[in-house]
Computed example of a mutant assay.
Amino acid sequence: MSNMVTEIVAFIMSMSGWVLISSTILTEDWRWDGSLDDSILESAFFWSNLWKTCVTDSTGVTNCKEFPSMLALDGYIQACRGLIIAAVCLGFFGAVFALVGMKCTKIGGSDQNKARIACFAGVNFILCGVSSLSACSVYAHRITSEFFDPMFVAQKYELGAALFVGWTGSILCILGGVIFCFSIVDIFTSSSHPGYIYRAHASASHVPSQSRGHRQPLSQRPSQEYSRSSRIQHFDKNAYV
Rank of each mutant, 00 (worst) to 15 (best):
F182Q: 03
R228L: 12
Y196V: 12
D186E: 13
G17K: 01
G60A: 15
S190P: 02
I25Q: 15
I232G: 00
L20K: 00
V88L: 09
S110T: 15
I8A: 07
P150W: 02
A115V: 13
R215Q: 12
S211C: 02
F152D: 01
E158D: 14
N49T: 08
D186C: 12
G166V: 03
G169R: 03
M13W: 03
G91N: 01
L73S: 06
F67R: 05
V138R: 00
V178P: 02
S110L: 12
S137Q: 00
G166K: 05
Q216F: 08
D74S: 12
S227W: 09
G75Q: 11
L175E: 05
A135M: 08
E158H: 10
M4F: 02
R231L: 12
S134P: 01
M13N: 00
P68E: 14
F11S: 07
S203E: 11
T144G: 02
R215T: 14
P68M: 09
G75N: 13
E158N: 13
S43K: 11
Q216C: 10
F235E: 14
F164K: 01
N49C: 08
C119V: 10
M4P: 01
L127G: 04
S205K: 07
D29P: 08
F93M: 10
S230Y: 05
E158V: 09
W47M: 10
A154C: 07
A115K: 03
I107S: 06
S227N: 13
Y139Q: 14
S48G: 08
S170F: 00
W167P: 01
S223G: 08
G60L: 11
S39E: 14
L99S: 02
E42C: 09
I8F: 07
A10W: 05
S229G: 03
Q233D: 13
F11W: 02
I107M: 01
I107L: 00
S191L: 08
L175N: 00
A200C: 02
G160I: 12
G60W: 07
A200E: 10
I8E: 06
N238K: 09
L71V: 07
C173I: 06
C119E: 00
N238L: 13
R142S: 10
A202G: 01
F164G: 03
A86S: 14
I84M: 13
M1K: 04
W32K: 12
P68Y: 04
G109E: 09
G75R: 11
S145K: 14
E66F: 05
R215D: 11
D57Q: 07
I84F: 01
S22T: 13
T27Q: 15
I197E: 15
A202C: 06
G17V: 09
W47F: 15
I174H: 00
S58W: 06
K103S: 05
W51G: 04
L71E: 13
A200R: 13
M1R: 04
D29Q: 15
M70Y: 03
L175M: 10
K65S: 11
G166R: 06
N63M: 11
A239Y: 06
G176Y: 02
T62I: 12
G177T: 06
V153C: 09
G82E: 09
I85H: 09
G82C: 07
